[in-house]
């Protein structure tokens, strides 16, 4: 589904990513882990077109996307959530979800201003889909609340709902459980499992090892901008390189 080949990114002379190569197979949940500063966020930003990689190729369904602008990549079917929430506080919860369907709502400003019947019907069906997504994430009773009054966990779920409502081919999740308590984490994990069984392909960037080891099909480990291991959770757990770079320290402290 998504294939990275020798992706590198330098900030000034500083290499943030060097020669990262891995694939995200269709229908699976791939986890991307690594210590702080390993380059995970940079990698996500490269994949979504926020920044352009210095060299290397990224293929999404056989199409090179490494130098496309962010909105085109999004329209190809890659959606994402953000590490530090980017929901729109002034819009209602329902409107926030609807922004996830922006590209399906029509492009032409002129047509939007005329609001011909076909657009009216489309708006109605988009609204139904958004309500359905709210239902899936247990937010239906808060549809008309302004998003800013939601509790932190609910905001995270709004973002998750917004990222999935457009039925994307690939979902990039940037630390979906950061800052959540154990109970909320369990809820999100459950929802990720549901998405996974519904056939969604996901790439999960996460620090919560328990969550990663529990739900990932494949784990990719980054350290100092290099991809040091790829494999199933069990393989990665036993990989000496990984233990040294990352889990080793955790093992020593635990």
């Amino acid at each position: 589904m998504l294939r990275l080949e020798n992706v590198s990114k330098n900030f000034g002379g500083l290499p943030a990513l060097s020669e990262v190569t891995f694939t995200v197979p269709k229908g699976q949940l791939t986890a991307l882990i690594g210590p702080n500063g390993a380059g995970k966020s940079t990698l996500i930003n490269c994949m979504t077109g926020v920044i352009e990689p210095s060299s290397g190729q990224i293929f999404f369904q056989q199409q090179q996307i490494a130098s496309l602008p962010a909105y085109k990549i999004s329209r190809l079917g890659i959606s994402r959530t953000f590490q530090n929430l980017k929901i729109f506080p002034r819009l209602t919860v329902l409107e926030n979800i609807l922004t996830g369907l922006t590209s399906e709502g029509g492009d032409s400003m002129l047509m939007a201003m005329l609001r011909l019947p076909y657009l009216r019907h489309r708006e109605r069906s988009l609204k139904l889909r958004a309500l359905e997504a709210l239902d899936r994430f247990g937010l239906a009773d808060k549809a008309n609340w302004p998003a800013e009054v939601l509790a932190y966990g609910d905001k995270k779920r709004v973002e998750l709902a917004r990222a999935t409502v457009g039925k994307p081919q690939l979902i990039l999740l940037d630390e979906p459980v950061a800052g959540l308590n154990a109970e909320e984490t369990a809820t999100v994990a459950e929802q990720l499992r549901l998405l996974r069984s519904a056939g969604h392909t996901m790439l999960l960037v996460e620090h919560d090892m328990d969550l990663v080891m529990e739900i990932a099909d494949q784990v990719v480990v980054l350290d100092s901008g290099k991809c040091i291991a790829t494999g199933t959770p069990d393989e990665v757990r036993c990989n000496p390189l990984v233990l040294e770079a990352y889990l080793g320290r955790m093992g020593a402290t635990a």
């Binding site: 980017k86 819009l91 922004t99 005329l114």
Partner: peptide, 28 residues
């Protein structure tokens, strides 16, 4: 009409956060 359409929601997204708007497919 404009603000109640997909284009209008795209605009509110631009006002909220341009990076997020692009990630939602808006040509900001």
């Amino acid at each position: 009409n404009l603000v109640r359409s997909g284009v209008g929601r795209g605009l509110s997204a631009v006002a909220g956060d341009e990076v997020a708007a692009q990630a939602l497919g808006v040509n900001t």
